[in-house]
Design a protein around this nucleic acid. Structure first.
Length: 229
DNA sequence: CGGGAAAGACTATCCGGGCC
DNA sequence: GGCCCGGATAGTCTTTCCCG
């Protein structure tokens, strides 16, 4: 719940044509204030269901990392805030100012708004907390991690994680992880001009050859066939 | 001719089933 | 919940094909 004072403040700022930016939860607050009804909001796929339930009339997307719509901006949180900020600095100050800011933040290159949000849930919402956390961790580590590491992060043994995973999802953790990575790869292939090796590295595979094989095994088509369709 | 994509062969490593 | 072993998968290297 957002207090009245905040809502009032935001409405006055909007009336005065002040640009308003929401980072993650901040986007919900802007929507709560009724300021995103005619502006597209970008939220994390983790929250898009909740956003739609709370604000059914508001246009919302979860396929990018941030969105700038006239005087309203929104991003999915985390490092996407820096990407959005970089775009704003470049747009309103200069490319040089953007580079300086990124250097201070130790960021090599800001991602564009259209960068695919690596967070679309592949599976339904499972009740088991270990499975939930495992799936989220997988999607946040697309560039690779072992099931051993994953289990350690969650605080269970590798074997125990595998058991509960198969029981809940019908898939082993490794298979689910592979599916998530190849699903992301497919979206990258169809939405960007990235080469196979670039996509392979993005999903934690070290060479294009192996990537092509894995991709075809999962999707039944090679990356170039998907791109051409 | 060069670069990228796809596939084959082989080896190393990891995962998953069985068992306790 | 942990250990062990066999099978599956990832990685490397190489070849072939296609396209500009």
């Amino acid at each position: 719940p957002v207090d009245r004072e905040t809502i009032h403040f935001l409405k006055r700022a909007a009336a005065a044509k002040v640009p308003l930016i929401g980072v993650c939860t901040g986007s919900f607050i802007l929507a709560e204030a009724g300021l995103m009804r005619y502006h597209q909001t970008c939220v994390s796929w983790l929250h898009i269901k909740e956003f739609r339930e709370r604000f059914p009339d508001n246009p919302v997307r979860a396929d990018c990392i941030f969105n700038l719509d006239r005087r309203r901006g929104s991003c999915v949180g985390g490092t996407s805030a820096a990407d959005m900020a970089a775009t704003l600095v470049r747009r309103h100050i200069s490319g040089r100012a953007e580079r300086n800011a990124l250097e201070v933040l130790q960021i090599d290159q800001a991602r564009p708004a259209v960068h695919i949000q690596p967070r679309r849930p592949l599976f339904k919402d499972f009740s088991n907390i270990h499975v939930k956390v495992a799936l989220m961790t997988m999607e946040q580590n697309l560039d690779g991690m072992t099931i051993e590491d994953l289990a350690a992060r969650i605080g269970v043994s590798r074997r125990q994680l595998e058991r509960v995973f198969i029981e809940t999802t019908g898939l082993s953790p490794a298979r689910a992880f592979k599916q998530i990575r190849m699903d992301y790869a497919k979206r990258m292939i169809s939405k960007t001009r990235a080469s196979n090796i670039e996509v392979a590295l993005e999903v934690g595979l070290k060479n294009a050859s192996h990537f092509t094989r894995s991709f075809k095994r999962v999707h039944g088509q090679t990356p170039s066939q998907v791109r051409g369709s």
